[in-house]
Amino acid sequence: MHLRIPPISRCDSRGDFLITSIQKEDLLRALGNISKIIAENENYLTELDSAIGDGDHGVNLRRGFDSLNDKLPSFKDKEIHEILVEVGRSLLETVGGSVGVLYGSAIIEAGKAVGDKKEISLDDLVRMVDAAEGAIRSRGQVDVGEKTMLDTIHPFSVALREATEENLHFADTLDRGLEAAKKGLESTKQMVAKKGRAKYLGEKTLGHQDVGATSSYLMIESFVETIKEIDQNSS
């Protein structure tokens, strides 16, 4: 069963009825929704991975997120950073392969970046995504343009930071990020794989969308939609 926490109505301190931060409950709901999206897309991810990889991305991620989803109810009394560290550890231990390490490490570092905050502001989110990106770069020894999850996550990170500097509303900032992530995802079709088992196929990987960039996009999209749904319900 996938966790479904009903939307909560609330307004910010200025009474604008628009969210300015992500609460713990929102985060848990987003994680539940991401688990559901991964399960729904297992076969799609398997297909993408079978084309130029070893075909286990969908199965491994699903196993990890199903397991995470079962644990989410037990996280409700934890602090935000504790939740993220637990989520990261859970993925590290249940996904396996490179993917488990990369997503697990990324989320653990995002948790460390948020510190003891009780809610996640846009500035916090920018730091968290930046920390997650750093974890993927260092663990995976990977750079932008190598046809990996970084090609979705890096543009997302850059767009979030730029939008924050423009003082856009939370939901609009996320939209900017999502748009950039989508472009990043699509750009992987024009890349030659330099990492993972796909790298052995070299030029033959041209035209194929990277599966790691795809699962990253699915997660980001689900996260953004969850937050926007909360935003709409609160206004």
Partner: peptide
């Protein structure tokens, strides 16, 4: 022992 063709996990 990892899953099929997939690396084992750090904790193990």
């Amino acid at each position: 022992v990892g899953e099929i063709f997939s690396s084992p996990t750090p904790d193990a």
